[in-house]
C-alpha cells in the first residue's frame, strides 16, 4: 500500500519556522478536530530486562487505562547496575497490556546485569545517527548490534578519549548534558503543536508527528534535545559554519527610509521566509512510500507500518487512514539509489 507525506501529515498545518544555529524547526500544528486524545504518555510505560532474562530482549508494560506508543528509537536508561537497552522500532501498547520485544539492543557494552520495572528509569530517544542505525537493523536478533554505531558516534561527537572506544550511550548524555540543555533552550513548543519538520544545516533531517499536544510535549525533550541535538553538536564539532537558515531573507535596508518602511520591508522578508518553507514542504510531500505492516492492534483498528521511500524511511502508527504517529528520517540507502551516476 502506498502513502505520501501529505497523507502522513494530514490534519496538520505548518507553523512559523524557528531557527537557531544549525537547526530549523517547522512546527506542525494540528487542526482541533484532528487531535487523537486516546493516546496517553509513553513515559508511564514500565520497562524491564529482568523479566526476559536475555540481553537484547525488552519487556514493556502499560498499566494505564489508555493506549500509548513506544516511539521509534527509544533508549531505556536505568539507575540500577544493569545494561541499558534500546529499541529501534515503534511499538503500539494498548491499554493494560504487556509486550516482549526480542530485537532490542544493549547500549552499554561492558555493563552486565538486568534491570527491573521498578528501578528508576529514564527514556531517551537515541542520538540521530544511532537511531538511524537502530531502524536499519531493527529485525536483527543480536544484542551487540548498536555498539559499533555508538562507538562511532562517541568518537564523532568528541566524548572524552577514555570512553570513546566503549559502546556506552550514557557517556554522551552525561558529558554533553549542559550543552544539550542550552541547545533545547533555543526552541519552543507552540500551541496545538503535534509535530515538527526538522532541518539540519538546510536539509530536511526528520518528520515527526504525535497523536496530541501532551504526547508531543513529552516527546519534545528526548527527541529534540537528545536525538536531533546530537546531530547539531556533531556539526559544531566538525567546525562547519552554520548555513544561513533555510530561506533566511535579510531585510532590504536599501528601501528603508523610516520606521514605516522598515516594517514593510520586515514583513516582506518574513513572508519570503514563510513561502520558502512552504515550497520546501510542497516539494517532498507528494513523494510516495511503500508501507509494510508491522503490527495490528488485537481486535482493533490501529496498526504500525514501516515506510520505505525514495528519500525517507521510518514508521507510522495509524487508525485506518488517519495517521496518529509518524517518525521519518532520510534513508541513506535510498539517497544512494537515487543519486546521479558519476560523470565528469
Amino acid at each position: 500500500m502506498d502513502i505520501t507525506i501529505s497523507e502522513v501529515l494530514k490534519g496538520c498545518t505548518p507553523g512559523r519556522m524557528q531557527s537557531a544555529g544549525y537547526m530549523q524547526i517547522v512546527p506542525l500544528i494540528s487542526e482541533p478536530d484532528m487531535i487523537d486524545k486516546r493516546f496517553g504518555s509513553f513515559k508511564g510505560l514500565l520497562a524491564s530486562t529482568k523479566r526476559t532474562t536475555n540481553y537484547g530482549t525488552l519487556y514493556l508494560e502499560n498499566r494505564n487505562d489508555f493506549p500509548t506508543i513506544f516511539p521509534m528509537g527509544v533508549g531505556v536508561l536505568t539507575s540500577a547496575v544493569a545494561q541499558n537497552h534500546a529499541y529501534g522500532k515503534v511499538k503500539l501498547m494498548t491499554k493494560m497490556s504487556e509486550a516482549t520485544l526480542p530485537n532490542a539492543a544493549c547500549i552499554q557494552d561492558s555493563q552486565g546485569g538486568m534491570f527491573n520495572s521498578n528501578d528508576k528509569q529514564t527514556m531517551t530517544i537515541l542520538p540521530y545517527s544511532i537511531r538511524e542505525k537502530a531502524l536499519e537493523v531493527k529485525e536483527q536478533n543480536e544484542f551487540r548490534k548498536l555498539w559499533p554505531a555508538i562507538k562511532q558516534f562517541n568518537s564523532d561527537i568528541g566524548i572524552n578519549s577514555d570512553y570513546r572506544s566503549m559502546g556506552h550511550l550514557e557517556y554522551y548524555l552525561d558529558e554533553f548534558a549542559d550543552r544539550l540543555d542550552e541547545f533545547i533552550g533555543q526552541f519552543e513548543i507552540v500551541p496545538n503543536q503535534v509535530g515538527a519538520i526538522i532541518l539540519l544545516n538546510g536539509q530536511v533531517a526528520g518528520i515527526e508527528r504525535a497523536p496530541n499536544y501532551d504526547f508531543w510535549k513529552d516527546l519534545w525533550k528526548p527527541l529534540i534535545r537528545e536525538c536531533y541535538g546530537s546531530a547539531s553538536l556533531i556539526f559544531a564539532k566538525k567546525g562547519e559554519k552554520p548555513s544561513p537558515p533555510l530561506g533566511r531573507m535579510p531585510i532590504n535596508d536599501f528601501l528603508v527610509k523610516d520606521l514605516a518602511s522598515l516594517e514593510i520591508e520586515y514583513n516582506k522578508a518574513e513572508d519570503f521566509e514563510e513561502d520558502t518553507v512552504k515550497n520546501l514542504i510542497r516539494n517532498f510531500i507528494q513523494q510516495p512510500f511503500v508501507a509494510t505492516r508491522e503490527e495490528n492492534e488485537p481486535n482493533g483498528t490501529i496498526c504500525v507500518d514501516h515506510l520505505s521511500g525514495n528519500q525517507f524511511t521510518g514508521q507510522i502508527v495509524r487508525d485506518g487512514a488517519f495517521v496518529v504517529y509518524a517518525s521519518l528520517i532520510p534513508d541513506k540507502k535510498a539517497r544512494f539509489n537515487t543519486a546521479a551516476n558519476f560523470a565528469i
Partner: peptide, 24 residues
Amino acid sequence: DGYENASEGRFGEVLKIARDKCKI
C-alpha cells in the same frame, strides 16, 4: 531570556537598520 528563534538575529538586524537608516 535572549533566545530569539523566529528568526535568530532578527532583533539585532531591525535595531541596526533603525539606528543606521531611521536615525533612531
